[in-house]
Amino acid sequence: MAKEVYRFSAGERFVHWCHGVAFLLLLFTGLGVLVYAFQPAMNVFGGIQVTRNIHRVVAVLFTLGMIIGFIGKGQGARQMRRWFKDVINFRKDDFDHAKNFGIEFFGGHKPFPPQGKFNGGEKLNSMFTILGTLCIVTSGYIMWFASGPSLLLQWAYPIHAACALFMAALLIAHLYLGILHPDSNQALKGIFTGWVPAKFAYEHYEKWYNEEAKETMKG
């Protein structure tokens, strides 16, 4: 078996999948309201009134999942906090990785400076997701609980819709890189089992590999 290194703890994987599944459910049920032509699709769950309620129930689970993932002393929560600190710390090396995003996306390659646990492109995706999530959650609760015409409620609508649509666009690219892209999809195993190929880790996250991952090598 090829050598592997440990990348994602159980806690991180749990938060990732809670977020992913909840996002898809929220997107699906939200689109039933946003796009009229999409409304008949809501019948798979029993109709638009059912999916409107599912949207709210999943929203609460989604919010709780996010919060619980970050609190406490467990390894998972510590890793989540580390991820957060890492990705908002965007420096020149990260920029020099992210600027070649287009080339890598279409299967080319250009050398980039050694990357930490999260590379420049991942940091950008993470930052968009953090910002989008904060905005969509806040606007969502306003849409849920505010009533009557008010500026707060009126502005919540375009913010909620914008975050939903732009994060959906981001998700499409994220799925491509994780599943379809012949080089970066080596990471896919990591988000299921926690382990990624050592060679892949070295090539993509040289700094992290040398400083941390190497010690976990197995196989």
Binding site: G107, A162, F166, A169, I172, L180
Partner: peptide, 22 residues
């Protein structure tokens, strides 16, 4: 927001299709 969001999703889908082909 609606038209731009639609364009963003369309552009993303087009980009990954090209990505697979390339």
């Amino acid at each position: 927001v609606y038209p731009l969001g639609g364009i963003a999703i369309g552009a993303s889908a087009a980009a990954i299709t090209c990505g697979v082909i390339v």
